[in-house]
Amino acid sequence: MGIDLALVWAVIILFGILMYVIMDGFDLGIGILFPFFKEEHDRNVMMNTVAPVWDGNETWLVLGGAGLLAAFPLAYAVILHAFMLPLIFMLLGLIFRGVAFEFRFKAHETGRHWWDKAFIFGSVCATFFQGVTLGGFIQGIPVVDGNYTGGTLGWLTPFSVFTGLGLLVAYGLLGSTWLVLKTHGELHDRMRSLARPLTWTLLGVIVIISIWTPLTHPDIAQRWFSLPNLFWFAPVPILVALTAWYLLRCLGREPHGGPFILTLVLIFLGYSGLGISVWPNIIPPDISIWQASGPPQSQGFTLVGALLIIPMILGYTGWSYYVFRGKVSVDDGYH
């Protein structure tokens, strides 16, 4: 029995996207939270918590895109065609965020506020259009004979806009709980207070999307609510409720790492729910990973490289986070 290369590559791409959402999500979240903190020393600490690691986090986005091209060229072509504009806006946001990140530390105090604004704009823009792309993807992509048949603005719908706003909340919660982990004193306490309403808001977003999606997509409703699927998938919403409850309880104490870990669990459960809704279609609503699969020779050749590179990425990522572990303060840096 041979290896199902399409399935292996689907798992790799899903893993890469999840790692990107988790690891780039909290530093984008810091940019989203910037407008709530006006003091220069607070903003310096917030940026210093991710300064050593932020650019490496985007490696996972490159892995996901390159893997899609190598393993599922049809999906790569259709998805890029369908979401060309939001992906361009997302990349522009990432460019603004990256340039602002580097130049802010070198700017004079009189001009630093411009780079702060660019950092906020880049973070919000990149996050919002990631969410819009996700929403458009869940809604489905019209394809005839392997070609995208929708319009230039086919991705722009009330649902996709809502998912864009929802992702802002999710990344904001990731950023706040990351700063609960990495800071102390007044900034730590303010982040803990901010994380509580963000948790409630994200829980509301999850509930709305969980209702909206099956109401507008009968095939997704059939998948979730038919028997025996209902019994298999019921743990996902139950675990979401339990995780959110424990996160709120943890924030009411003297938390450090707990809220961030619980937020990661909440993000993973939401990601799993979306995966259940569309699997195994890589171009919703009806083109599966096997239908969009590239030649086995190409998948096998690139898989060798992926299996060599992914452990290296995990290794240097883990090492960098280990080296820069601990709290960050204005005067002392890491300690």
Rank of each mutant, 00 (worst) to 15 (best):
P259H: 03
S277D: 13
S288N: 07
I309V: 11
I261R: 14
I261D: 11
L274A: 15
L262T: 04
G305V: 02
G257Q: 08
P285V: 11
P296N: 07
W279G: 01
L266S: 11
I309F: 11
G257P: 11
S288F: 05
P255Q: 06
S298W: 12
G257W: 09
F268V: 13
S272A: 15
L262M: 10
H256P: 12
T302P: 13
P296H: 03
W279P: 00
S272T: 15
F301M: 13
G300H: 10
G275C: 06
P284H: 05
P284I: 04
S277R: 03
G300Q: 09
L274I: 15
Q297R: 14
P284L: 05
G294V: 00
Q299R: 02
G258Q: 14
Y271T: 09
V278D: 06
I310H: 02
M312S: 13
P285K: 06
P284Y: 09
Q297P: 01
A306C: 06
S288W: 07
T263V: 10
P280M: 00
A306L: 08
V265K: 00
Y271M: 08
I310F: 01
I289V: 14
I267C: 14
G258V: 12
F260A: 05
L308R: 12
A306M: 09
H256L: 14
S288V: 00
M312I: 14
P295C: 02
